[in-house]
Design a protein around this nucleic acid. Structure first.
Lengths: 349, 349
DNA sequence: CTGTTAGCGCCTTCAA
DNA sequence: TTGAAGGCGCTAACAG
């Protein structure tokens, strides 16, 4: 691997001159510049970013930690962030925490050791990494939290308007003539889950529908567990709700599995809507009504905010909180047949 | 950001000693070790990997270039590779080429500058980066190609048994009583696409069904283009095939869109099967029959092979080619109603 | 076992 | 405009 020294030697100039033509920071005569460029090509020279970073203490690299990038919401965020970062001359390295607090801690440490200049973080579920976050912030490394916003830390964040988005979904169900609507949530230790439940309550209240606490089903983020929970709740035809609204992708998959296991078809027997688009085509037949988050935008806005912090953009003193609106994608699953709105829906397999 | 020097100062030892306790390469007395560890904690010290890499010329980092990590096949590969890499003490940085040859070139250069120790590459469609690849190989940086294997370069590779996998899918259709089966492919400049078509031919031949060249529909990887192509082919009810087999995810989406646009339902009017699981739930109603690639395994095996190269594992002189088997996931879309096998299938929306 | 020291490759003053 | 030299933080001899 040739170094700058070798290039200087071949070009017959000093290393300083080579450095000048590479960085463009200092003017170099046409003649020497051409010589240097020829030498670079000849040697197939690639500047060593490692050495450069050591010298400048700038890596022009950002890190992003997500729970699991095979969940389609996250790659979209990553792409948004990557594109924004690239536009401003930065790289993005993405890693998965598996929603494991220990691993998240290791990754945070790793990213610090890699000397990333800022971190985008989707906190692992069930953790409250307040101290981890503030230690990093104290060390002068900016962090922007995405999607899941930890409590009681002053940290920049970008997420969807959870309450409004959930309310929009529930209001849609209400507009389809449904009244007894259950909500299936993840752990309520996550603030955005709590917000979504709050949106659910608001929607019901605004419609003058009393909130039944036993229709708030708190699960976790594991599909199998949520399926078991829902099977139990759905078993009794008497108390069964007319509709189910899920606050995230994994719980939605669990709920759908439970519906199938109970021999229930949506929307024939029960209406269904969820937060987040699902990426399965093998469980559920009718198209699914979903509250869709602008994942790409969340990623790009977060990256831009982070870069503003890194580059100390003026007028950015206190904590910035960005909340984006979600969109409602109406599908067939919320078209309750009992209401006689449309043709009978196809059966789930 | 404290340095090793600061730690040494606080602990009252030399930098060498600090280095020894961090790397564990040289024994250090209990007493000093504890002092050093206390200092590290107190200062919130994180070793500078940049400096370490410069010194050791080892970054313990791998790079992976994929066309688009929002296509679900790729994140699975990345996770597999990341997990394998982590087990062996390496990092993985993932970037997207957007199937753009120029960008791929830039990324390759970038990864070299980042001094990654090896590269996992899914080549951008429509490019034949032979010279790029061999330049990197010549520089002593190993590369393993995944999924799409370039022609005429001696490079390690991991992919699915394309011909056999495609044949399996087509044979399934044949077993459902279908004979006139069209195949929708991406660009045949990609070797794996060619292989899949070859598998299609073999399956037909083995079943004694003559291959009709006009049933081989070559498209590209853009859904809209493929949809247009298929609409045209499907327009005439007389020449319409009984089944469609797609050789990849994007063409499958295009074909499905065309079916919908033509008012055709699968499997009621035409049977359908494809390579790769689709991640859309909004276009197609019945569950889809798919030839599923072991994406995670492809990633992990590729990473392990790459690491073997990096670590110069013995008995690995010539080019290694790993081919994995795919699995058939039978869904409803291939259950041709015309054959009277089951109940009439639900309509696509 | 512990300390000292010479670079790794590069950028950046500072002189010429 | 060009060249010479110091040092970023760390590891790996080497000397003690």
């Amino acid at each position: 691997m040739p170094s700058i020294k070798k290039v200087a030697e071949v070009a017959g100039v000093s290393v300083g001159t080579v450095s000048h033509v590479i960085t463009g920071s200092v003017p170099v005569s046409e003649e020497l510049r051409l010589k240097v460029q020829a030498a670079i090509r000849e040697l197939n020279y690639h500047p060593n970013h490692v050495a450069r970073s050591l010298k400048t203490s700038k890596t022009r690299t950002l890190g992003i930690i997500v729970p699991d990038m095979t969940i389609s919401f996250f790659p979209q965020i990553i792409r948004g962030a990557e594109t924004a970062a690239r536009k401003r001359g930065y790289f993005l390295i993405a890693v998965n925490s598996d929603d494991d607090g220990e691993r998240q801690k290791d990754l945070l440490s790793l990213l610090r050791s890699q000397r990333v200049e800022g971190i985008l973080l989707v906190v692992a579920a069930g953790t409250t990494p307040i101290s981890q976050i503030s230690r990093i912030l104290d060390a002068g490394i900016p962090i922007v939290c995405l999607d899941r916003i930890p409590d009681r830390v002053a940290v920049d964040s970008v997420s969807v308007e959870d309450a409004e988005a959930a309310a929009m979904g529930v209001e849609h169900l209400i507009s389809m003539g449904l009244r007894r609507i259950a909500v299936v949530t993840g752990p309520l230790t996550l603030k955005n889950e709590r917000r979504r439940v709050q949106g659910y309550r608001q929607a019901l209240e605004r419609a003058g529908i009393p909130v039944e606490e036993q229709l708030i089903w708190q699960g976790n983020l594991r599909t199998a567990d949520v399926a078991a929970l829902c099977r139990e709740k759905l078993a009794d035809a008497g108390s069964r709700p007319e509709a189910v609204f899920c606050t995230n992708g994994p719980t939605a998959l669990g709920a759908l599995r439970a519906l199938r296991d109970c021999g229930l078809d949506a929307p024939r027997d029960i209406a269904f809507a969820t937060f987040d688009e699902l990426t399965v085509d093998d469980i559920f037949s009718p198209s699914i009504t979903a509250v869709v988050q602008p994942a790409y935008d969340i990623g790009s806005q977060a990256a831009n905010l982070l870069l503003d912090r890194i580059e100390q953009v003026a007028g950015l003193d206190k904590t910035v909180t960005i909340r984006l609106a979600a969109n409602l994608k109406v599908g067939e699953s919320s078209r309750w047949a009992g209401h006689g709105l449309g043709c009978p829906a196809p059966a789930a397999r």
